[in-house]
Amino acid sequence: MSDTTHPNELVLVPGSFAYSALYEPLITPLRAKGLIIHALDPPCFPASYKKGTPSPSMYDDAAFINAFVTKLAEEGKDIVLLAHSYGGTPATESLKGVTKKEREAQGKKGGVVRVAYLTAIVPKIGEHLAQVISAAAQGGAPPIEIDEDGWMFQPRPDLTAAIVYNSLSPERGTAEAAKFGKHASISFGTNLTHNGYKDVPVSWFFCEDDLCVVPEVQETAINVIEESWKGTERQGKKVDVTRVKCDHIPIHSASEELEKWVEGIIAKGGKE
């Protein structure tokens, strides 16, 4: 049962190539404070990889997230959905029918009350991750190879670290990047069909030194979200943005700021 001091539960969707365990340095101290956090390992992510398994798509991730969130909502839970990096795309796609606004219209309790993006990829409807990243790449992309089953992997942790852990020492960054696993390649080229953020408050943790999801990409996504609110009951609202000078994976480079931010979005829930 949820702690009544913290009525909202958080569902975390990781970034690509990442196991949910990567976020334990963030999750563990928050759980110690009584916060309820669920960290997912959707189909396109390393935990699901098995040799000989065909590469799933972003839509498989979205369906997985939707099913998990629906189960919590059916229990009457109010949910904050937090997505990092690639996770922003399936998380956004997954929200069809599970926001609290949509469920209340059907006489149901529970649902997603806030979407929070951690330096995430949020394409426009009809676009996909690869388009968004290639349009504004500054730091370049780490080398990616694809195996015979269509799963991507990063063969050079040192080069990956230079892009995603650029706030850390090369040695530590490389050690962290070496923990990444395989990620389904189709997921990067699957178009967004649903702008799930349109019915809920949105928060954004803006990583100003991100060389992967660069500031231009983050700013564009924020603008797209706010544009989607024009002509709706949310017209005039702004994305709640927290800006921090840190790299793409601030679990280590901005741990205190990130922990405070996550605690804050859980406390806010659906409140503006």
Rank of each mutant, 00 (worst) to 15 (best):
E216M: 08
D61N: 05
S48Q: 04
P155C: 12
Y86G: 00
P14R: 01
G181L: 04
E148I: 10
L118A: 07
A18T: 05
R114Q: 12
A63I: 14
G110C: 03
K198C: 07
G189P: 01
A136W: 00
D209S: 15
E227G: 08
R172S: 10
A135T: 06
I133H: 10
K230N: 15
I36Y: 10
D199H: 05
I225M: 09
E272V: 11
I133N: 06
L30G: 04
H194E: 08
A18R: 01
D209T: 12
V244I: 15
K245D: 13
V262H: 04
N66G: 09
L82G: 02
D199C: 06
K271A: 13
V202N: 01
N195S: 14
L258V: 06
E272D: 15
P142G: 03
K51F: 07
G107L: 12
P56D: 10
D78E: 15
K101R: 14
K51T: 12
E257P: 09
L118M: 15
T28V: 15
I144Y: 02
P29F: 06
H252V: 04
L129F: 10
P250A: 08
D61H: 02
H84E: 03
P215F: 07
I121K: 00
K271H: 10
A47G: 10
L82D: 01
A184F: 04
V202E: 03
V113Y: 04
H248T: 01
T99P: 05
K71L: 14
T4Q: 11
P90S: 09
S2W: 04
A162F: 00
I225N: 06
F68A: 11
Q131P: 02
T53D: 07
G76A: 11
T232E: 14
S187T: 12
C246W: 01
L82R: 00
G270I: 10
A184M: 05
P25H: 08
G236K: 12
G111A: 11
V213L: 01
E259C: 14
G52N: 13
K268D: 09
F17P: 00
L12K: 03
D210N: 01
A18K: 03
A221N: 08
K101Y: 13
S169E: 13
A221G: 15
L35T: 00
G196S: 12
S228N: 09
R31N: 07
G181H: 09
E208W: 09
D61Y: 01
A39N: 07
P123T: 09
K230P: 07
G231K: 11
L26Q: 02
L35F: 09
W204R: 03
G110T: 02
V112A: 05
I251P: 01
I146H: 06
V213E: 00
I222V: 14
I249G: 00
A63C: 11
D3Y: 02
Q218F: 04
E102I: 03
S255I: 06
G76W: 12
G181R: 05
A177E: 00
P170W: 07
V224N: 10
E176P: 05
G126E: 14
I249L: 11
K230W: 11
L95Y: 05
I125R: 12
S134L: 14
A67T: 13
G189S: 14
F153R: 00
P43Y: 08
K260E: 15
V213P: 00
A254M: 10
R243E: 05
P54R: 08
V224D: 12
